[in-house]
């Protein structure tokens, strides 16, 4: 699903070069649920941005679903993000002036679907996160947990095979966070590959595979490897 080999990312300013990622290699199989941990500034967000095609990398090779992405232009990368990747952010990043229906509609618009095709997909996605009854509400009328559910619905509406989550529970209280985690686990069990960045050691320990990054390199990896194959079997 995701294959990174020797990825380097260097930020240059006039005075200094910072190696955000150094010879970073990682392979994620279809259906896995991988958590990424590490201290602030270790490079985990850089990894996520590169994985999500939001940033380019300096050297190395990255194949997403068998496609080498380094040569793709902005238009093709946008296409890939739209079709294959769902994003979930710590601060939700819902469009404040769009209601829930329109928020979930955004990726489908970019996919160019007809209104008659979009409507059932949106309703289904909102139903799956338990917010079907609030389609006309604005994000500001919802609680944090509900907003994150909308964001998840938005990430899932286009049936991506790959979900990238950046501290999805970071802005939520522990009860709500647990609900969101359960939702993500259900999604994973239905076959969507998930890579989640978190600094919550509890969550990391619970996941099947945890990668700890330090100074732009994979420091250690814990996981119950056999689960990945069984996950694929479930899908």
């Amino acid at each position: 699903m995701l294959e990174m080999i020797d990825i380097c990312k260097v930020y240059r300013t006039d005075l200094v070069q910072t190696h955000a990622l150094r010879d970073f290699s990682l392979s994620v199989q279809e259906g896995e649920f991988v958590t990424i941990t590490g201290p602030s500034g270790c490079g985990k967000t850089t990894f996520l941005n590169i994985a999500g095609l939001l940033e380019t990398y300096t050297s190395g090779s990255y194949q997403l679903d068998g496609v080498e992405v380094s040569q793709l232009n902005d238009f093709k990368r946008a296409r890939l993000r739209n079709e294959k990747i769902g994003f979930i952010f710590q601060s939700f990043n819902l469009m404040p002036d769009l209601n829930l229906f329109d928020n979930v509609d955004v990726p489908l618009r970019y996919r160019g679907l007809k209104a008659s095709e979009r409507k059932p997909l949106i309703e289904k996605a909102l139903e799956s996160v338990g917010l079907a009854g609030r389609m006309k509400h604005l994000p500001s009328q919802l609680s944090g947990g509900q907003q994150q559910r909308v964001a998840i619905a938005r990430a899932l509406v286009g049936s991506p095979r790959f979900l990238l989550a950046d501290e999805p529970t970071g802005n939520l209280d522990s009860n709500t966070a647990r609900g969101v985690m359960e939702l993500l686990q259900e999604i994973n069990e239905l076959g969507t590959t998930i890579v989640m960045v978190t600094h919550d050691q509890e969550l990391a320990r619970e996941s099947r595979r945890n990668i700890h990054i330090l100074d732009g390199q994979i420091h250690e990896e814990n996981g119950r490897g056999e689960m990945s194959s069984s996950a694929s079997a479930v899908a």
Binding site: L54, A78, R81, F87, N93, L94, Y110
Partner: peptide, 16 residues
């Protein structure tokens, strides 16, 4: 900016 970033993440290319 945040909204524009989110739109890019959701599949908007620069042209759109």
């Amino acid at each position: 900016s945040a909204e524009i970033g989110a739109r890019q993440a959701l599949g908007a290319h620069k042209g759109s």
